[in-house]
Design a binder for these strands. Sequence first.
DNA 1: CGGTTAATTCTACTCGTGGTAATTTAAGGA
DNA 2: TCCTTAAATTACCACGAGTAGAATTAACCG
Lengths: 216, 216
Amino acid sequence: MEPTAPTRKHRSGIVRRPGRPAGRTLADGVIADRETLLNAAERLILAKGPSVSLDAIALEAGVTKPILYRGVGGRDRLIDALAERLSARMGEWVSREVAAARSPHDAVHRLVSGYLDQTVRERNLYLYVSGGGSGEDRVRGLLRFAELTAERFAEGIANFRASRGANPDVATVWSFGLVGALHYVTLWLLRDTNADVNGVADQLTLLLCTGFRLED
Amino acid sequence: MEPTAPTRKHRSGIVRRPGRPAGRTLADGVIADRETLLNAAERLILAKGPSVSLDAIALEAGVTKPILYRGVGGRDRLIDALAERLSARMGEWVSREVAAARSPHDAVHRLVSGYLDQTVRERNLYLYVSGGGSGEDRVRGLLRFAELTAERFAEGIANFRASRGANPDVATVWSFGLVGALHYVTLWLLRDTNADVNGVADQLTLLLCTGFRLED
DNA sequence: CGGTTAATTCTACTCGTGGTAATTTAAGGA
DNA sequence: TCCTTAAATTACCACGAGTAGAATTAACCG
């Protein structure tokens, strides 16, 4: 008659009994911590590619789907969160590179090649974020990442322009343009992994520093 | 026992009996012509937004799903086709603008503002193409459109560079950068329709023509 | 110490969408 | 007239996002 609890086996292989777990309450917030879930998502996406499902992510995190939903709030929210993390890492990495630059031109070069390197390294995550969005907002991930990254760059651009007595109002548009240029060149690069990243970085740097050389 | 044919009602409201229709053969090729299907897709996407389904598109074309599949070959193929058409229209429009330019700087300005105008006009179609792609290739539409458009721009850039004795090898990277900058600024613009398109075009033109003004 | 309640989880389901197979009918020749 | 072939429709499958509700247990109070 089996009076003991069912002790079912979770799909992930983790043996877990249903029902309320001991000693914790939701207010503690420690269970299935958001960070843990996001880490699992990143791990799986990096490993398996940009087309992993939320089921698979929940599995990777050792958690069931509703828990994942409680933690991150659905696919769109997940994309937002990953975009934020990716952008933050990118910003950190790039600003470290830029800080070590010896000239403005060198700074741009480091920014570009740092961006490209970092992106190639986290290829799948980058593609996941870039290709995401549901319903009407099909470019959600793209825009989210763009906004966050552009915002970081905009400050630097505005400061630099202001320090030279130039109008800093262009900073927003310029930074979106910068991120866009970087992004597209990146996507193009990501098609084949044997591309000459350095050469491409040089060429893009040249464009960014001098433009088409059309003074009016 | 109902010996007569079922005479079912098609979802579109068209009454149609299943089975082979009279008087036509596939070799005639006139039925459900590819162009017609693509036109219907564009019409519906423009009207209803970028998240329309293939079912809805088939419905709009007055055709059943398998016919749509025979005609365009699945969602990815549809995205490819729409990207191609969009890019072609864009190229035509932009090159007409550029041809009327009085100076290189003016040409860039016309290119930018032409691109932005055209994109705002075909907003939903642009979003559909940008946000599409299934399976592993989540950025398919984005890349497809980028490649096609960049290719058009690359020729112009290479010619211009060559005519000034500059190295034209940068044309590919530069054109991807150009398209990326345009694309991101566009997406940012598309969020609110009351943006000052002209002002943004001016700012982006400045970036493209002179860069950050960092001669090395 | 036992019963009641509230909390929290898991399972199982719905719904929409891309894609395909099975079914049904018309055309055309032996 | 019958049979084969072509064509198009309906109906179905697979899969992923998101959610409702059953199931189970800890906590609390008499």
